[in-house]
Amino acid sequence: MNVLIAYDRCSTCKRAEDFLKAQGVSFQKRPIKEENPTAKEIHEMRERSGLPLKRFFNTSGLLYKSMNLKDKLPDMSEEEQEQLLSTDGMLVKRPIFLYGEKVLVGFKEKEWLLALGKSV
């Protein structure tokens, strides 16, 4: 089952949800604030996506900024960063779309079209 991990009050998440529906892609929606990914899930998503761990942080979020994570992350191990991400869904970049073996982080229409095997 495809899973869209999103936040209802996020306009980008809403655009991603509308995009998937328009493409006829079925998915289960998972609210990131109530069902935050665990450290293990973050680790697995990062490995499947091939993306650097930094891409999983919501760098424009208030919590990220208030915790001064821009300066703290370079001194943290990957395990510590994954654990930190698992503490609050508002730290995690969204939406995250789990599609087969693919993991898409943040909504970029062209990137998502390619992942779905559609022409751009």
Rank of each mutant, 00 (worst) to 15 (best):
V103W: 04
C10Y: 09
E111Y: 06
M76L: 13
D8W: 15
A6Q: 14
C13M: 04
T38Y: 05
L91F: 04
F57L: 09
E101I: 07
R48S: 09
S86K: 06
E111F: 10
S86V: 05
K108Y: 00
P52I: 02
E35T: 12
E44P: 01
K118C: 07
F19H: 06
K108N: 14
K110V: 14
R55C: 07
E101Y: 11
L20Q: 02
L85C: 06
L113E: 09
A115S: 10
L53V: 15
R46S: 14
N2T: 12
E17A: 14
L113P: 01
E34I: 12
R46E: 12
E111R: 02
S11T: 15
K108Q: 13
A115I: 03
K14H: 13
E34Q: 13
L53F: 03
S77W: 09
Q83G: 11
L62C: 00
P74T: 00
Q81L: 07
S60D: 13
Y7I: 08
M45K: 07
Y64S: 10
N68H: 11
L53K: 01
K108F: 01
L63W: 12
D71K: 03
G61T: 13
M45I: 10
D71Q: 08
I5G: 00
S60Y: 05
S66H: 08
N58D: 10
L53P: 13
V103Y: 03
E44M: 02
E82T: 11
L62W: 12
E17Y: 08
V25S: 06
S11L: 06
V92M: 08
N68I: 00
V120W: 11
P95R: 00
K29F: 15
L113N: 07
D71T: 08
